[in-house]
Simulated scan of single mutants.
Amino acid sequence: MSDYFYQVRSAALLFTTMADMGLGERIIGGGRDHLSWILDVVDQQLLKPSIYEPDGVHENRDYLFFPLSLLINAIVQTGLLNYLSYKRDWLEELDMLYRSLSPRSRASQSMFYVLALENIEVSKRYIRHSRKFLQGCVQDYLEVSDSRSMDDYLRISYLIHLAGHVGHLDILPECLWVRLEDRLNRNEMNCQGTSPYGSYYMVLAYTLSSYHLTGHLNELDLDGAYKNLKAIDANRNCADLNVPKLDYVIIDIALQMRGK
């Protein structure tokens, strides 16, 4: 896999899985240090100009920040914390990349930033007041977005989950919920494949997850969703573009049911 964006993300997920299985030492054993190798890849990429075009969700510095945030979490899972200072101070690099993101990008990336800092137990060093941090993310996003873009359901959902994670759901403005439900009920089902993140199943999964988080799933109006799902089923081209994303819905439901 030669594409940096997918290469580092895939390595991070693999390392995290191996660590969870108790196989973390194999990442740097067997005669090859895979962790230093992937950090070398990141180090070199930071020296290069961006070659990526926006894909509907990610833009500019997202392509550097997102993989690194996942990789830092993977390093923490392995317990090999000395690698956080291999060649660079990777926490400082992550912080600088985060602060260079656009307001729309921060709406969907802040959750990964917070998790990375919390997992290393340094969140207070970078985020002194979680409530003010969340308010800033929300306000900055609302100033630049009318939530009519194909991917805004995703950004709103991440803001809702961030609010739930830091314990400040109460400060979310009502307009976020209105915009999310409006997107769910709009007859926009990505039948032309204009965005990889436009699958209606993904819209449904993220919306259901957000309402489930707050315990208000029963209050969600799903009439529009039922109509859209029927329309997808009746349109072969639309179904071919949307059904492959059904796994997101299934995985999300499975994760929501853990411990029940």
Rank of each mutant, 00 (worst) to 15 (best):
R106A: 04
V166I: 15
D140I: 01
S10V: 07
R61F: 13
D247W: 11
P54T: 10
K245L: 09
V249S: 05
A107M: 08
G136P: 02
H165A: 12
L13P: 00
I51E: 15
N60L: 07
S85G: 01
V166C: 08
K230Y: 06
D152L: 04
S147M: 15
N187V: 10
A234Q: 08
A163Q: 02
F133Q: 05
L169S: 13
L220W: 05
M21T: 01
D43Q: 09
K245G: 02
T16G: 10
R258Y: 06
I251K: 14
C175Q: 12
L13R: 12
T17C: 10
L213W: 02
V138P: 02
L180S: 03
R125D: 11
D140Y: 06
E174I: 09
V57D: 00
T16D: 14
G56H: 06
L255G: 01
R236E: 10
L162A: 06
L169D: 11
V76Q: 12
I72E: 00
I156G: 03
K132N: 14
D252N: 15
E25A: 10
R236T: 07
D62W: 03
M189Y: 10
H58E: 11
I120F: 13
K48N: 06
S69T: 06
Y98N: 01
L115G: 02
D20M: 11
N187A: 13
Y226S: 04
A19M: 00
R183S: 13
V203N: 02
R125A: 13
H168A: 10
L180H: 07
L94D: 02
L80R: 11
V144K: 07
M150S: 08
M257L: 15
G198P: 00
M1C: 04
R26L: 11
C191F: 00
A12N: 03
L213I: 02
G215M: 05
Y158K: 14
P173S: 08
H216K: 14
L217F: 11
Q135K: 14
S123C: 08
N187T: 09
T16M: 12
L204V: 13
L64M: 12
I38H: 04
L46Q: 02
K230C: 06
L217K: 04
S2M: 11
H165G: 02
R61T: 11
L229M: 13
D233Q: 13
R104H: 04
L134Q: 01
M150E: 12
S102H: 02
